[in-house]
Amino acid sequence: MKPPPFSYHDPETLEQAVELLATLDNAKALAGGQSLMPMLNMRFVLPDHVVDLNRVSELSGIRRNGQTIEIGAMTRQRDLEFSSEIATACPLMSEALTHVGHRQTRNRGTIGGSLCHLDPAAELVCVAAALDAVVEVVGPNGRREIPFAEFPAGYMSPAIDFTELVSRVTFPVWPRETGHAFVEFSRRHGDFAIVSAAAMLLLDGAGRVSRAVLALGGVGAVPLRMHDVEAALIGQAPTAELIRRVSETCRTVEAVGDVYVPASYRQHLACVMSRRALETALSRADRSAAAA
């Protein structure tokens, strides 16, 4: 289990990195290495060139910008985990990060790497789907922004060209009164989720749901936004019965089955995790200070 031969490049600027990816044949960008390195060791990928982004310092950093929070693609998961900015502006991500791998992998793993790897069971992928993150991509033709809903082209395949790099991910900041929850079912602590659910609930002055988000990870080939559930919640008083009923509709979601877990079990868990996420989000939503 040793990496195959390749040439190694370690640019120091984004411009150099983009140039390398645009000119080299069969090149692979190396971010935190927590997914690419195992695939190299197992020779599941055989690149001729590895472009290491770890010296591109401009790709790291967390910045609050009004009602959004901008995160450089090479920002380590650990830095997000311990960021007070993230804890305040994006508590859903903070909660999700406690489920991401282990300390050693979060010390190296990056947000951009996780989104580009696009494992449908990955927690940050689910968070990006829930929050309608915007992914900034840089390539030979300059920068462009991709709404996360359009980011997955298919199973573990981001809709970006192989000459392009994810440079930044922007998350909207929800009002402080929002209730959030990230829950997941995995076999062991730190494993990829079998099913994860991310929920955000904002209540109006009358205690009705004014904004709602529900995203499911691990169920399908790509992370799923449950728009029907969200629509069914908005304008309603979020009773336990309502949450139970809308969560149950997840049973018909299209799910993948594999040798470990049948699709029907993922559908079952989709209901359970949805309900638990919505219940927790509701319990955390501030009813008194309803957004005006």
Partner: peptide, 12 residues
């Protein structure tokens, strides 16, 4: 910081 050395290249 703790890291898995099998998931890093020596050159890094």
């Amino acid at each position: 910081r703790s890291a898995r050395s099998c998931l890093m290249l020596a050159v890094q």
